[in-house]
C-alpha cells in the first residue's frame, strides 16, 4: 500500500503542490495512492490529490491571496477575541473548491483519507477519516460522513491556534479542534499504523541544521517568543519522522535477515513462524520505504511564505511550487538521497 502524507505550512503548501506535480507527471498519477494523510495545508491538498485534481491544486496554490484565506486583524485581538485573525474566508475557499460533487466522490472512494487536528478539550491528536478505522493509544479517529463535515475538518486541520479560531467540526457545541500541526506536523503515524508499505512524505520545514531562525542577536521578548514557538514546532516536525524511519529500517533489516536465512537453507515456514509472533512490535507495520521530501532552505521568511505560512502571495507561491518540483526531481532522480537510509 502506498501512502501520500503532506505536512502543514500554510502558503508553503505551494512547495508540496510542486512536488505533487512532478510525481503526477513522472512517477505516478496522484490519485493512485491507497492512503492520503494531511495536516493543515496538507489537509487542504490531500482530498484534491485523492481526486487527481492536479490542475485545480496548481491554480489554488498560485492564485490565492491573503484576503482569500483570512480577514486579518491587529495583535490586540488576542486580548478581546477568540483569535487574532478570522478564517471565515478559508472555509468559503474550501466550499468553492470542494464542491458537493467532489465531496461525494471522496466520501464514496475506497481510498483512506485522514485529516489531522487537535482537540482543544482533550488535547488528543484526532484524525478525521472517511473510512472506518480504529483509534489507537496515540490518536483518536473521528469518522466524517457528510460533505460539510469534510469541509469543516479541512478547515479545523488548518486553523493555527491563536491566529485562527478553533472549529466545531460536527457543530454539536461539544468539541473544538485546531491545527493538527500542534501535535504532529507531518501525519505519518496513521499511515504507518494502517498498513502503508511505502510513503511519500512532504514536509515544508527544512531538515535539522538547515533551519536558521535568526542570524542576529535577539533583543526583544517577542522575537524570543517567536524563536520558542518556532523551535517547538520544528521539533514536532522532526519527531514525526523518527518512529516511521525506525520502523522502515527495522523492516528492511528483518527482510535482509530472512533472505539470508533462506539462502542458508532455513525453510520458509520456520522463518515465517520465527518472525510472526504476538510479541513482534512491528508486525502490523509493514513500512519498508519512506521518501522524505523537504525544501533545503527555510520557507518561513517573508521572502517566501512568511511566519506560519500566513503570507499568501501568488508570485512567491509560484516560486515555492517551482522549488517543490525541482526538489522532487532531484529526490527521485537520486541526486538527493531519501531522508532515511533506505
Amino acid at each position: 500500500m502506498k501512502a501520500l502524507v503532506i505536512g502543514g505550512g500554510g502558503s508553503k503548501g505551494a512547495f508540496a503542490v510542486g512536488v505533487l506535480k512532478f510525481i503526477h507527471q513522472n512517477i505516478q498519477p496522484i490519485d493512485t495512492f491507497d492512503i492520503y494523510s494531511g495536516t493543515s495545508t496538507g489537509s487542504l491538498i490531500s482530498p484534491l490529490a485523492l481526486l487527481g485534481e492536479m490542475d485545480l491544486l496548481e491554480e489554488i496554490y498560485t492564485t490565492t491571496r491573503n484576503e482569500d484565506v483570512l480577514n486579518k486583524h491587529s495583535v490586540g485581538r488576542i486580548l478581546t477575541d477568540i483569535s487574532i485573525h478570522d478564517a471565515t474566508p478559508l472555509l468559503r475557499l474550501i466550499e468553492r473548491n470542494l464542491t458537493a460533487a467532489r465531496s461525494a466522490r471522496i466520501m464514496a472512494s475506497l481510498k483512506q483519507l485522514y485529516l489531522s487536528a487537535v482537540s482543544l478539550q482533550t488535547q488528543e491528536l484526532v484524525h478525521f477519516a472517511t473510512r472506518d478505522t480504529a483509534s489507537t493509544a496515540s490518536y483518536r479517529i473521528e469518522k466524517i460522513t457528510t460533505p460539510t463535515e469534510l469541509q469543516r475538518a479541512m478547515l479545523a486541520s488548518s486553523c493555527q491556534p491563536i491566529y485562527m479560531q478553533p472549529i466545531d467540526v460536527f457543530q454539536r457545541g461539544k468539541e473544538q479542534f485546531c491545527d493538527g500541526g500542534v501535535r504532529e506536523n507531518t501525519p505519518l503515524q496513521v499511515a504507518v499504523e494502517n498498513g502503508a508499505t511505502e510513503i511519500i512524505a512532504i514536509s515544508m520545514g527544512p531538515k535539522v541544521g538547515q533551519s536558521v531562525f535568526s542570524s542576529s542577536f535577539l533583543t526583544k521578548a517577542t522575537a524570543i517568543l517567536g524563536f520558542t514557538i518556532d523551535t517547538f514546532s520544528t521539533d514536532v516536525g522532526q519527531n514525526d519522522y523518527r518512529l516511521p524511519t525506525f520502523v522502515a529500517e527495522v523492516n528492511q533489516y528483518l527482510a535482509t535477515v530472512k533472505s539470508q536465512l533462506a539462502a542458508n537453507g532455513v525453510s520458509p515456514s520456520v522463518i515465517a513462524e520465527s518472525f510472526v509472533t504476538a510479541t513482534n512490535p512491528i508486525s502490523s507495520k509493514p513500512l519498508l520505504k519512506l521518501h522524505e521530501i523537504r525544501p533545503d532552505i527555510n520557507l518561513s521568511s517573508d521572502e517566501f511564505g512568511g511566519e506560519g505560512g500566513l503570507l499568501f502571495d501568488p508570485v512567491k507561491m509560484r516560486m515555492m511550487m517551482t522549488m517543490g518540483f525541482d526538489m522532487a526531481k532531484r529526490h527521485f532522480s537520486g541526486l538527493v538521497p531519501a531522508g532515511p537510509s533506505l
Binding site: 478581546t80 471565515t88 472555509l91 466550499e95 460533505p147
Partner: peptide, 15 residues
C-alpha cells in the same frame, strides 16, 4: 465587529 467564535458553513451547501 468581533471575530466570530464559530464559523458557520455556507447554508446553501448540500449535506
Amino acid at each position: 465587529e468581533k471575530i466570530p467564535a464559530t464559523i458557520q458553513s455556507n447554508p446553501t451547501d448540500v449535506r
